[in-house]
Design a protein around this nucleic acid. Structure first.
Length: 359
DNA sequence: GATTCGTGGCT
DNA sequence: TAGCCAAGAAT
């Protein structure tokens, strides 16, 4: 008996699919939220965020009506914050233009901020049962192995080829289930590295398996070069208040909050940098005021190595000009602001450095 | 087409 | 352990 690939995957999915919160309904809003959260993010990592997001913003109207800062606070720690900013913008647009209903068509969905080819196809097929194929990392891995395709996944040629394959396999009856089936299969069975092919329902027809190339596929050609960046944070705590700053456009962590920065001067010693900065503002690096410089904190991103230091100053009057965007808040209001993980991790590690009575 | 944009788990 | 890379999109 020679069951086609599509049937095998659907059957496998019906048995093995995980019970995930966004699979309990086909409400487009839930599908949309889950798909955005899951971009470049593992299910386990996104689960709590999804539940909290839906709890905080039960429908598209509550999301559209919220300030973007509140959306970012819910997103805090999840990364790729443009996803949250774009969701907020798209929610407002969908409310204004479409009365709160997402369009059904792939092409219309694609016009919305934060919705690209993958997500448009996911919403159209899962929420609206439209026969639209999709390709994500899982789909690419599954089909590249199954059909022995070694075109690099990070090329237009590879993506085009994969969409073509997905199109030929897509069943008219259950497009949304099929798309999810391939992704689920990639996440649970045809995993990166060394999958357990002995219990794979496709092992007999898998070309990579036949050619013993399972671990080689899929192929990717570009290597991301990592750049090191230095950040010097000024943590100024005085009179129960701390100085914060909202991050600006065209840089990492846009619209999140952190601390004022001392501009980096390559190669200069931290102590010298601090002294120079304070001196420029008429403050001496002296024994009377309590100041100290943290050890370097390494924060690793996919494309950056950030080395941060925290320059602490306590109980000294803030008497140089507030740069644009700097503002003071009581220490116990900090919990209302969204910070990058680098900051929250540091604060969790050294809570004593963030106490207002630190004299 | 090449870069940028986070975080965390796994090997 | 240091890299790999995950339900990608925007610029």
């Amino acid at each position: 008996m020679n069951m086609p690939v599509t049937e095998i995957l659907l059957k496998w999915y019906d048995i093995h699919k995980r019970d995930l919160p966004w699979r309990k309904s086909r409400e487009p809003y839930y599908i949309w939220v889950s798909e955005i959260i899951l971009q470049q993010t593992r299910v386990l990592q996104g689960m709590d965020y999804y539940n909290r997001f839906i709890e905080t913003f039960p429908d598209i109207f509550s999301l559209a009506g919220a300030p973007v800062e509140k959306v970012l606070k819910v997103w805090e720690g999840l990364g790729y914050y443009s996803r949250a900013r774009n969701m907020h913008e798209t929610a407002q647009k969908v409310v204004e233009i479409f009365g709160g209903k997402f369009p059904h068509q792939y092409d219309e969905l694609l016009k919305l901020k934060g919705i690209g080819p993958y997500t448009a196809a996911a919403i159209a097929s899962i929420a609206y049962q439209q026969p639209v194929p999709l390709v994500d990392g899982n789909v690419y891995r599954v089909f590249s192995r199954l059909f022995g395709i070694d075109i690099p996944s990070d090329t237009a040629k590879g993506k085009k080829k994969m969409i073509h394959i997905a199109t030929t396999l897509l069943p008219a009856g259950r497009p949304g289930d099929f798309n999810q089936a391939v992704m689920e299969f990639g996440a649970l069975q045809c995993v990166p590295g060394k999958p357990d092919c002995s219990r794979c329902p496709l092992r007999k027809m898998c070309l990579a398996k036949k050619q013993d190339r399972v671990e080689e596929l899929p192929v990717k050609d570009k290597e991301t070069k990592i750049i090191t960046r230095y950040i010097h944070y000024l943590v100024w705590i005085s009179n129960g208040e701390i100085i914060l700053k909202q991050r600006k456009e065209k840089d990492i962590w846009y619209k999140l909050y952190d601390f004022p920065e001392i501009p980096d001067k390559k190669g200069i010693e931290p102590r010298k940098l601090f002294r120079g900065f304070l001196g420029k503002h008429g403050i001496s690096y002296d024994q009377h005021a309590k100041m100290f410089i943290s050890e370097p904190v390494l924060h690793q991103l996919t494309h950056r190595h950030i080395i941060a230091r925290f320059y602490h100053v306590y109980n000294k009057k803030w008497h140089f000009d507030m740069d644009e965007g700097n503002f003071r808040v009581p220490m116990d209001h900090m919990k209302n602001y969204a910070f990058p993980r680098l900051i929250t991790a540091y604060m969790e590690k050294f809570p004593e450095r963030f106490q207002s009575d630190n004299e």
